[in-house]
Design a protein around this nucleic acid. Structure first.
Length: 485
DNA sequence: ATGTTC
């Protein structure tokens, strides 16, 4: 793919489109990538990241991570920090699947211990963690009770027996963004979401049994701090978000913003998909409060899924989940907007950070990460495709160059439509089983869309984040079992 | 991503 002529190489893994690349840019646009990944990016990335650079109140740069690709308004892999007083909030900078994120859970089992029961284990997970479009969960909630879930997130789960106390500490922001207000959420969103707690969803959402092979440990000391202590230790990784609920919240407020952006607030954008409102406006604050509900719904969703996973392991291995060492490493969000304090031009100040397909990666010693990770920096979980593996990384002090943010996954190289034409789900399932990965899916078409070859090489993506100083590799994790939504 | 095109 040809890159724009105006693109300048600032450092080996940093590329910049200067102000003036297109009219209206307030700051330069920065792309983190190796030369190989840069050339694998679609033209939409350059178009979209430079459009983001035109949004009112943007600070420093508009950014795109190494796994960046074309998305709704913002690129997926997009990062933009706004001045909360003069800037805007934009749903396109967060994504439809609000608080889509990753959770990584330990076990003290080895691959050899799991292997004889792997099929049964994956089948049970497939049966007990509902997946697929329109899937509904086993938690029966009234609409009113669901409103408490979305205001309290993981705290609701703790009160209702779905969490261990320490799970909350190992979740970004304790599993609850404060200030969530269910009265800012439409009845339609509540109606779509109230029966979706504890469900995986579809698309690239999955639940995976993985192995930390000894030869894939990059930093043994940090791995140990993250709970990876034994050769061929088995871990569980899953990826999902706020389901139909978050989707409806995003849809509702995109509509609202389109109605007021120009007429009421006089804001012009290059693309209607960048619909936004001043952060301090009524509409902006309402969306922020509703978005937090979706964030908390996703935290609660992943928490209830973890509860179900623990039940399945207890049944399959006839042992208590505590005895199986099923503690969380961490839970990271990769589709959010959040007020954070950052050093901007030598001054600590509050900024509104939009991360869309981009993971917070706080470095060592920073406020807001668990004490046990103070020395190492926060754990960062980056999911690859179901065929090629995933990574556990750590935040770095040099992450300050991008508001302590890193990549979130592989990034697609082809559309879902193309992948479906190229791959056949049933054959893929057989091929993967021959290579030691047992897959269960609700949809063979959906499986084909997620073929490893439809994604960039995860090794390339994490290498780029490390070279750029955004996050460093700790352990590569290899899949042996997968439940595909 | 998504009661996958109100």
């Amino acid at each position: 793919m040809p890159v724009p002529n105006a693109l300048r190489n600032i450092a080996p893994t940093v590329w910049e489109l200067p102000v003036g690349y297109k009219p209206g840019m307030l700051v330069p646009a920065r792309i983190f990538a190796t030369e190989k990944l840069l050339h694998a990016m679609d033209a939409g990335v350059f178009e979209q990241v430079s459009n983001v650079a035109c949004l009112p109140g943007i600070i420093n740069h508009a950014y795109c991570m190494p796994d960046g690709h074309w998305g709704y308004g913002f690129p997926i892999g997009g990062l933009a920090a706004m001045d909360p007083e003069a800037g805007v909030i934009s749903p396109g900078g967060i994504g439809f699947d609000i608080n889509c994120g990753m959770r990584l859970v330990l076990t003290n089992l080895t691959c050899d211990e799991v292997q004889p029961r792997l099929h049964h284990l994956v089948d049970q997970l497939f049966y007990r963690v509902p997946a697929g479009v329109g899937g509904h969960g086993f938690v029966r909630l009234s609409h009113d009770e669901f409103c408490r879930v979305v205001e309290q997130g993981s705290r609701w789960c703790l009160k209702n027996g779905y969490a261990w106390p320490e799970d909350l500490e190992m979740t970004e922001e304790g599993g609850c963004f404060p200030g969530a207000d269910a009265s800012k959420v439409s009845a339609k969103a509540v109606d779509r979401g109230y029966n979706q707690i504890g469900t995986l969803g579809s698309g690239n959402h999955y639940l995976e049994i993985q192995v930390a092979r000894r030869e894939n440990v990059f930093d043994e000391e940090t791995a140990r701090a993250f709970g990876i202590t034994a050769p061929d230790q088995v871990v569980i990784m899953f990826h999902c978000g706020s389901r139909g609920f978050g989707h409806q919240v995003a849809t509702d407020y995109l509509q609202t913003f389109l109605g007021v952006m120009e007429k009421k607030y006089g804001i012009q954008v290059n693309d209607r998909e960048l619909a936004c409102a001043p952060f301090r406006s009524r509409e902006g604050q309402d969306y922020f409060a509703a978005m937090k509900c979706a964030v908390n719904m996703a935290f609660a969703n992943r928490q209830v899924i973890l509860h179900r996973i623990r039940e399945v392991f207890a049944d399959v291995f006839h042992r208590d989940p505590r005895d199986l060492g099923m503690n969380m490493v961490y839970d990271v969000a990769h589709n959010t907007a959040k007020l954070e304090r950052h050093l901007v031009q030598g001054k600590m100040r509050e900024v509104l950070v939009h991360r869309k397909g981009a993971t917070r990666a706080f470095g060592p010693g920073m406020e807001g990460i668990p004490d046990c990770y103070r020395e190492t920096g926060q754990p960062v979980i980056i999911g690859g495709s179901m065929e090629t593996g995933s990574y556990l990384l750590a935040g770095m002090a040099s992450g300050d160059q991008a508001f302590y943010t890193t990549a979130h996954g592989s990034g697609r190289t082809m559309s879902r439509h193309q992948a479906k034409k190229l791959f056949k789900g049933q054959k893929l399932q057989r091929d993967m089983e021959a290579r030691g990965i047992y897959v269960q899916t609700v949809s063979y078409g959906g499986l084909a869309e997620e073929a490893g070859a439809a994604y960039k090489d995860i090794d390339d993506v994490v290498e780029a984040t490390e070279l750029a100083g955004l996050s460093r590799r700790i352990v590569k994790l290899t899949p042996v079992g997968n439940v595909k939504g």
